[in-house]
């Protein structure tokens, strides 16, 4: 069905990595593009600390978001997922595995993702 004649997938899942240095620390990004959705992990060490899911709803201008894994007192994964869902109109899975104290870092991270979205929209 979704397979073309030559056995290549028409709508394959793709993975994209990038990284950036912010304030003496390297932050890594890992994106998995799915059909109508993407998963993004942000972190400086290879830990999966939490997972938030967000998607738009016709009943509210702000996308719905929920934390399915991790510490509920950390609002960073939810708010990032919500903002990315709003921007991309897709279902977004976010794992934000950076220390939760630093709100200026989360702003830099969000801007870096938005920049990548503009540079490589096909990767999300």
């Amino acid at each position: 069905m979704s397979e073309a004649q030559n056995g290549e997938l028409r709508d394959p899942i793709s993975v994209h990595n990038f990284s950036e240095r912010f304030m003496e620390q390297t932050v890594h990004f890992h994106v998995m593009k799915l059909s109508g959705a993407f998963f993004i992990w942000v972190g400086s060490s290879p830990l999966l600390s939490n997972l938030a899911v967000s998607m738009s709803s016709k009943y509210d201008s702000m996308p719905l978001s929920t934390l399915v894994m991790g510490d509920p007192s950390d609002t960073a994964p939810n708010s990032l997922a919500q903002r990315l869902a709003k921007k991309t109109k897709k279902q977004v899975f976010v794992s934000y595995s950076l220390p939760m104290t630093d709100s200026s870092l989360s702003l830099l991270v969000e801007n870096r993702i938005k920049k990548e979205l503009e540079l490589h929209p096909g990767k999300f």
Binding site: I13, G36, Q91
Partner: peptide, 25 residues
């Protein structure tokens, strides 16, 4: 007869595996 995609991702505290016949999580 159904196209099945698998993606395995390694984290130090988790292995994340997507197995999909819809292209979705």
């Amino acid at each position: 007869g159904i196209t099945t995609q698998v993606v395995c991702t390694e984290f130090s505290n988790y292995i994340f595996i997507v197995i999909t016949q819809y292209g979705k999580i």
